[in-house]
């Protein structure tokens, strides 16, 4: 029974990480931008939900997701579009600037203290089944992550803008010459990344009940690690990487002796290091990212 408990924990934690990794991987695939401000989209969405907590919960979470999408679009338009042809390192620095700006904006307006909120009370319940007890939030997390992944996959494969997006991630210049409207495609990618951040915000808020200016930081780091393990630039890789980190985290938490528990992250980062040393492309290598001689 305890094994099943760990399986559910892994799927739920992994699902959350996979969502976040997808949000980062999608933008990286198209723009070669490692968006460190991704977690701040989540944070903005969460604060929006906090401010709209008085409404009925579907409105609250919808409002939060819409804000996350809007902020994603705004950061694209204001910060990243003017730098599109710049070196990836410049883009990375710009994303740090955006992150810093958003966090300090919230710090200034809302203060630095954690604020408590209970957005979807129904998800606080849990189901008991023999020795197993599963919180509804975990089931919700598993369901919403799978739904969004399936949805994204259909979008990328069946819609014309999705196909354009995949083309742009293969080779932006070639796609543009063939008539792909790059501005639209990139804006759409940011909107999806905002949507994924908004969904992650629901899960994180459901789990923690707290909003904090730096709340997105840890998830961004984990998502980044997941994309490295899964393969930078590959969306399938991002999903695999997200679940891999989730499973690793839950399993390590279950088997490590107490003295080593504090160093759980060190083990996860050791895995990343091994990947960087022996398979730098990650689990799924992306052809368009390899150096062509």
């Amino acid at each position: 029974m305890i094994i099943l408990q760990y399986v559910i924990d892994s799927l739920s934690v992994g699902g959350l990480y996979a969502l976040a990794a997808l949000g980062i991987g999608l933008i990286f695939g198209i723009m070669r931008l490692i968006n460190f401000a991704y977690g701040d989209l989540l944070m903005m969405g969460a604060y929006a939900m906090f401010l709209m907590a008085a409404a009925v919960w579907p409105i609250t979470i919808l409002g939060g997701v819409v804000i996350a999408i809007l902020v994603a679009l705004l950061t694209e338009r204001i910060a990243f579009r003017p730098l599109r042809t710049a070196d990836p390192s410049v883009l990375l620095a710009a994303s740090f600037a955006v992150s810093f700006f958003l966090q300090n904006l919230v710090l200034m307006v809302m203060g630095g203290r954690a604020l408590g909120v209970d957005i979807v009370p129904v998800l606080n319940q849990h189901i008991v089944w023999g020795e197993l007890s599963v919180s509804l939030l975990n089931l919700f997390t598993i369901a919403i992550s799978i739904a969004l992944m399936v949805g994204l996959s259909i979008f990328l494969n069946k819609t014309s803008i999705g196909v354009n997006m995949r083309a742009a991630s293969e080779d932006v210049r070639m796609a543009r010459m063939l008539g792909v409207r790059v501005n639209l495609v990139i804006a759409a990618a940011f909107a999806i990344s905002g949507l994924l951040a908004g969904a992650a915000a629901i899960v994180i808020l459901g789990k923690t009940g707290l909003v904090l200016p730096a709340m997105g930081l840890r998830l961004t780091l984990v998502a980044f690690v997941a994309t490295v393990i899964g393969g930078m630039g590959s969306l399938t890789g991002a999903v695999i990487g997200g679940y891999a980190v989730g499973i690793l985290e839950v399993v390590l938490g279950g088997v490590l002796p107490l003295a080593l528990l504090n160093y759980r992250e060190a083990f996860i980062f050791a895995v990343v290091l091994l990947f960087l040393m022996f398979r730098p492309g990650g689990i799924i290598k992306v052809a368009s990212l390899e150096e062509r001689v």
Binding site: L16, Y17, K207, R218, V222, E249, R264, E265
Partner: peptide, 10 residues
Amino acid sequence: EVKTFDGQVT
């Protein structure tokens, strides 16, 4: 850590 305390709670 991200604040997913599933492991700790289990």
